[in-house]
Amino acid sequence: MSLLKLDLENYKDLLKEYIKTKDEQALYQAEQFSKHSMQQNISPEEIINIHIQALQEIYPDMPEYIQSSMNFLLETMISYGLAYQEYQTLREKQLELKSEISVAANMQKTLLSTVKPDLEDVEVGALSVPAKQMNGDYHHFVDDRQGTLGIAVADVIGKGVPAALCMSMIKYSMDSFSGMGTDPNVILGSLNRVVERNVDASMFITMFYGVYNSNKHTFTYSSAGHEPGFYYHKDRDEFEEIDVPGLVLGVSPEVTYKQYEKKVEKGDMIILLTDGVTECRQGDRFIEQEEILHVIKQYSHLPAQGIVEQVYKHFERLQDFQLRDDFTLIILRRNV
């Protein structure tokens, strides 16, 4: 196809052709002409102007009233032209914003990145997938290389950018606690005071903090209103909900958290998650707890990382690949 020229001559020829033949081909060319005009930022009233000029050239004796009606139409279209211009500007702005958010999202990734520890006796699988660009879920591993591994899983309520900013604050507070020992209840208590002082009243954070001691094979934990995880007993082949009371972070300054301890046997698993997993919906149907456990069990022959990935794929499929909420799943398994 010849390159469409955006000029009066070309338009005049097309118009003439169409009036004469009523040919579909000419209409198709007209469509191409308008698409091309849009790319060149030609406004609607400019096209009408070209139309008027073409008409005048084709029909020099065009009646006066048609000429006037065309001028009338031209005036009418001016607002559309302005709206179109505005749309273009907004589109550019939107692209700009999008790229800024993606810079922020990358920065968040770097800031909040955590290294999945490589331990001898305990296998760790972890996966966190944001529903939108910025992740409101957070998980962090603290490996002291002397046999204790700290694991934090958190969910900021409120989504998107504010939640992500809040998460960065949590991460830096936790880093600054490094000299305070590793008791989960102490860590949650300190974080609660930081969050209570620093965030908006409608924002709060749920967090589960656990410490695995691979010398004693114990798991010590506390929860600040976080979605309950699960404990898998290998010997009984049974799951148990890790349901511990505790108020969410950021609501009341005088909260103390209780701490619990479990002896971990060979083959046992600790499953930590966020409500993006349990609040999964398939259409109007909520996913039941048993279904999550069933899926975990189905893949339990895989390495821990394989399990979390397969479980994610399962729920991603159920939700037609459209996550409603950030999804985080962590599995620890004692192998030796």
Partner: peptide, 15 residues
């Protein structure tokens, strides 16, 4: 109700 809803009731409680 999702967690955003909880946030509303926390603000209301504080208020």
């Amino acid at each position: 109700m999702d967690s955003t809803g909880l946030g509303v009731f926390i603000s209301a409680l504080k208020s």
